[in-house]
Computed example of a mutant assay.
Amino acid sequence: MEISKVPFGTYKGEPVTKYILTNDNGVQAGILDFAGLLQSFKVPTKDGGKADMILTSENLDNFTNNGFCTNRLIGRVAGRIADGKFSINGKDYQIEQNEGKNALHGGTNGFYSHIWHVDSTEATADSVSITLSLTLSPEVDTYPGKMHITATYTLNNDDYLSLKISATTDADTLFNPTNHTYWNMAAANVPTIDQLKLYVNSENHLAVDDGKIPTGEKVANEGTPFDFGTPTRLGDALEKMSSTKENGFDDIWEVTPSLTKPVATLEDPESGRKMSLYSDRNGLVMYTMNSDDAAVYNHGQVHPHLGLAMEAQNLSDAPHHPEFGDITLHPGEEKTYTIKWHVEY
């Protein structure tokens, strides 16, 4: 087990550092102190090299010069909040509306816009980890309460990378974080995620309005392009979505939370590389990068469906749908959520 660090450019004049966690099998996770960003997740290849399981770049500007939150930590609240409004214990709050009339991904000064403090790194016989922290106040991100957040990435010799995100607050607030990594473990000469096979442990997805805000209705996946109950070629599902406004997925699946049984798996039949995702929450937002924005990068290509964001979180807009689960955080309590990824190669 090993941890090392290297400079990784600057953000708003401040230096950014990359921390490289390496296990005894040669699996590597690169973590930036900027946005707690998962910059790389490399596995050994059969020819003795290494392949990245995720979309990546060695240039920090490629991560910061687009609106796709690429590979960053997201919070205080992942996903959308209708009209940027919510109530806790009868008190109404208005937060920044940064996507039309709605609030998205914690706002422009959320988790993804800051260089985090590195609290510690640790290497043991079986694992290596890094713990980062951030403190946000209403003056910074418009959410109520001064929130202190810690995020710990741990890579072990069983090829699991885990992320534990914890928070405390001095006033009632909301907490529903995620990691916004884009996955594509295919070879560099494969331009899209079409050949990948996706499985999701889900029976329903959420109906949404034109602003991608849940209506409250749960729609059965069976018989729709949203059905990944058995491993399904993404290209086949995306073809069925080609006539939609998005030309792909930007949607919310209700999943069965589990840290022992995969919530979802994504695999490349050609290379044999596979990622299994575990989460202790009931939502999985998936976005198939439905854009030809030149700011989106991978292997020098610019076209839709380069990668798949798999955002494990609580079901979106929960403050307006209590049946989706409670994402409030109160003074005197600490909440911790866990996301795990297991890689096979």
Rank of each mutant, 00 (worst) to 15 (best):
S113R: 14
A151N: 03
D119H: 00
E139D: 13
H114W: 10
I149Q: 03
L132F: 10
G145H: 03
T142F: 03
S133M: 06
L132T: 13
A123I: 15
Y153I: 13
T124R: 03
M147G: 03
M147P: 01
V118A: 05
S113T: 11
S129Y: 03
E139Q: 15
E122L: 14
H148F: 12
T150K: 13
W116R: 08
K146C: 13
S137L: 00
H114C: 02
E139G: 14
I130L: 06
T131Y: 02
Y153K: 09
L155R: 02
I149H: 04
T135V: 12
L155P: 01
S133H: 06
A123C: 15
P144N: 08
T142K: 04
E122R: 14
S137F: 05
V140W: 04
T152L: 10
K146N: 14
S127M: 07
D119A: 00
S129N: 01
G145C: 05
T135H: 09
S133T: 12
T131R: 09
T131V: 10
A151H: 02
T135E: 14
D119C: 00
T124N: 13
S113L: 02
L155W: 01
T150N: 07
T131S: 00
P144K: 05
D119K: 11
S127F: 05
V118H: 01
D119S: 00
S137T: 15
Y153R: 04
T124F: 11
E139P: 00
D141N: 12
S127L: 02
M147C: 14
P144T: 10
T150G: 03
T135Y: 09
H117W: 03
I115W: 02
A123V: 15
V140N: 11
K146T: 15
H117Y: 11
S129F: 04
I149C: 09
V128E: 05
K146V: 14
I130N: 05
Y153F: 15
G145Y: 01
H148Y: 07
D141Y: 07
V118P: 05
S113C: 01
G145A: 09
L136Q: 12
H114N: 04
I130C: 04
T152P: 10
I115Y: 09
T142N: 08
D119F: 00
D126L: 14
A151M: 03
D126M: 03
S127V: 11
H117A: 09
H114D: 06
L134Q: 04
A123H: 08
L132P: 08
H148C: 11
T150C: 09
T154C: 13
S113G: 12
S137R: 15
Y153W: 12
P138S: 05
H148S: 14
D119G: 01
T124L: 11
Y143T: 11
V118N: 07
H148V: 12
V140S: 13
